[in-house]
Design a binder for these strands. Structure first.
Ligand SMILES: [Mn+2]
Ligand SMILES: [Mn+2]
Ligand SMILES: [Mn+2]
Ligand SMILES: [Mn+2]
Lengths: 217, 217
DNA sequence: TTTAATTTTTAGCTTTGTCTAAAAATAAAT
DNA sequence: ATTTATTTTTAGACAAAGCTAAAAATTAAA
């Protein structure tokens, strides 16, 4: 399995994880920042290897083996992110790029030992679940802060956007995983939210709220 | 810098580190398990990028920038080996292959943080020196056990052959880095050595002795 | 239901790194 | 000093992964 094949599987996995229907060539091309023609070429290759179900012009989906492969790459990515944050003291906005490289290291023994070394974490630094060695995922119920109604409270458990810009914004506002968030009121004009973060009042835009996952208290 | 370019630089570095004259195309081909024609192609590319001094038919050597690049790859390789052994509890015969992959991960910050996390080790699990962030190497004086004369004693500080087979043999004989070795006598017929390892008497072949580095007591 | 727009695929080209086979240069041996 | 052997380089081919431009299929619009 080449790096490129692994990256395509991962992209298809992420695109199909929420809407579990087939995914389009263009959607993959956009996510991978490549051209549709390149995607078509790769889909044929992945189809020959039985990692995807592909019929011309009809979108693509992962086979069971393709899904497992994808989950193992995601597992590696997220475990390495935990390592970088917990052991090497990286901040959560710096780890994604490095994990993009580390996720391609091939050694089952390595990743399982790393898993143990980290204490078998179930979530990565961004609150995303880490598949176990068999591909099982423990999904916690969480919802977007933007979907709450005033006077509800929750704990911040994840971010939807994991861009460095967004994560740095959260650092600046002192919003972190584990922060208690009380939803006070919503402004009807721009849908911005007045909230309390660990007791401290703050106003955030709806865009921010729709990228923050909370678990209701 | 591609993985392949990095591997060539590393090979040339290792081939020139002892005999610091130019190295032949064939020698590189043999070390990299590839063909001489492939080597020639790569040497042109590395020469264009000023990593090597290369003139047709006249062997090749590293430029200063090439040597520094090579050292940084060796640094990464050896630091990752320390990580695998010290933190993840791998044995010293398992780490080389994985380090061959990890040495290509690109992030200066990562490797320097890893270095600190490991306590800035100066040697890897096989006793080889780890270049620092600037490429400096602290060489300890050591010699092959096969070069000693009877009644000399030393501490085992390194291995020349790092193959899994050899390392497993040493494990079996309970010879490890740090073991005290007393050289008792040499058999004239086959040059085999009678030694004591931490007080326990043992006979080893000359081939073994010529792959063990000791520091004289 | 034709036409128009969009999406997807194909065809052909490029780069990287590899290979084999042949040619050229160097080294060794008569 | 030739001839022979070895080493090194070149020439040409191939697979992987990407691209552009054109063709084909599908979807949307008129
Ligand atoms: Mn990530
Ligand atoms: Mn993450
Ligand atoms: Mn090694
Ligand atoms: Mn080593």
């Amino acid at each position: 399995m080449t790096f490129s094949e692994e990256n395509y599987l991962k992209a298809i996995y992420h695109l199909t994880s929420h809407s579990n229907s087939g995914v389009s060539t263009n959607a993959i091309a956009e996510m991978m920042e490549t051209k549709a023609s390149s995607v078509t070429d790769m889909l044929k290759k992945l189809s020959d290897k039985d990692f995807v179900n592909y019929k011309k012009y009809q979108g693509v989906s992962l086979t069971e083996s393709g899904k497992l492969e994808a989950k193992m790459i995601v597992r590696k990515h997220r475990l390495w992110e935990v390592f970088l944050v917990e052991k090497l003291d990286f901040s959560w906005d710096e780890v994604h790029e490095i994990a993009e490289q580390l996720e391609h290291i091939k050694s089952e023994k390595l990743i399982n030992k790393l898993d143990d070394f980290l204490g078998n974490p179930t979530e990565d630094p961004h609150g995303d679940p880490i598949p176990d060695a068999k591909g099982r995922i423990i999904a916690i119920e969480k919802q977007l802060l933007s979907e709450l109604v005033p006077h509800q409270s929750g704990v911040c458990v994840g971010v939807k956007d994991t861009s460095s810009a967004f994560l740095k914004y959260l650092d600046k506002q002192e919003i972190a995983l584990g922060s208690t968030i009380d939803f006070i009121s919503k402004e009807t004009f721009d849908l911005s939210l007045k909230i309390k973060v660990d007791g401290k009042e703050l106003t955030i835009s709806n865009k921010i709220a729709s990228n923050l996952f909370v678990k209701l208290l």
